[in-house]
Amino acid sequence: MKVFLGFVLISGVGWLLDMVSYAALSQLVGVAPAYANFISSMVGVTYVWIIALNRLFDRREYGKSIYLPIYWGYQGASILAYSALISIVAASTINSKIGEILGVPHHLVAKIIITGPNLLTNFIFMTILTRFMKPGAQ
């Protein structure tokens, strides 16, 4: 549980990086929600990978190993799936109403809604992947 809570905290910072870049891309640049989500999510997951490996999983192979491309590959597939889900949720009437009530763009509400399931699947995958890595490797 301690590792999961640490992952939640580190992911929270990654999520903030993700949300700021997502909002900038979608609001300021006009990038479509699915594309903005993919780009911004890669920023966040790379941050989480580097910090969580050192501080939570006691793994230090992030810079010179095959595991980072594997993680990015998983994240790419995951981000594509969650981006498609964001597009569906963002287009829903309920999501639009929530956005109106909160005074927040509906595509930001959609991203917030999918954050929980995304966090859980990312933690599970990273936990499994790090089991293949050497502890404290340099």
Rank of each mutant, 00 (worst) to 15 (best):
M1K: 09
M1F: 06
V3Y: 09
V3A: 13
F4G: 04
L5H: 10
F7S: 04
I10D: 01
S11W: 07
V13F: 15
V13D: 05
G14I: 04
W15D: 00
L17F: 12
D18F: 01
S21V: 06
A23N: 07
A24E: 13
L25C: 07
L25N: 02
S26V: 14
S26F: 14
Q27H: 14
Q27L: 15
G30H: 09
G30E: 06
G30A: 10
V31G: 02
V31Q: 03
P33I: 10
A36Y: 04
A36S: 14
N37K: 10
F38D: 02
F38G: 05
I39P: 03
M42S: 13
M42Y: 03
V43M: 05
V43I: 12
G44T: 05
V45A: 05
T46F: 05
Y47P: 05
Y47N: 11
I50S: 04
I50L: 14
A52D: 09
N54S: 11
L56A: 02
F57G: 01
F57L: 03
D58W: 08
D58H: 15
R59F: 02
E61F: 08
E61Y: 06
Y62R: 12
Y62W: 15
G63A: 11
K64W: 14
S65C: 06
S65Y: 01
Y67P: 06
L68Y: 15
L68A: 10
P69M: 03
I70E: 12
W72K: 05
W72E: 01
G73S: 11
G76M: 10
A77W: 07
A81F: 07
Y82R: 04
S83Q: 08
A84W: 10
A84V: 15
I86K: 02
I88S: 05
A90G: 04
A91E: 11
S92C: 08
T93G: 09
I94M: 13
I94D: 14
N95L: 11
N95E: 07
S96P: 06
S96N: 09
K97I: 13
I98H: 00
E100P: 03
E100I: 08
I101M: 07
I101E: 08
L102D: 05
L102E: 00
G103F: 06
G103H: 08
G103E: 01
V104L: 09
L108G: 01
K111S: 12
I112L: 12
P117L: 01
N118Q: 13
L119T: 12
L120S: 07
F123T: 06
I124M: 01
I124Y: 12
M126C: 06
M126F: 09
T127Q: 00
L129I: 04
L129Q: 03
T130H: 01
T130N: 10
R131M: 08
R131K: 13
R131D: 08
F132A: 13
G136D: 15
A137P: 14
A137N: 10
Q138N: 15
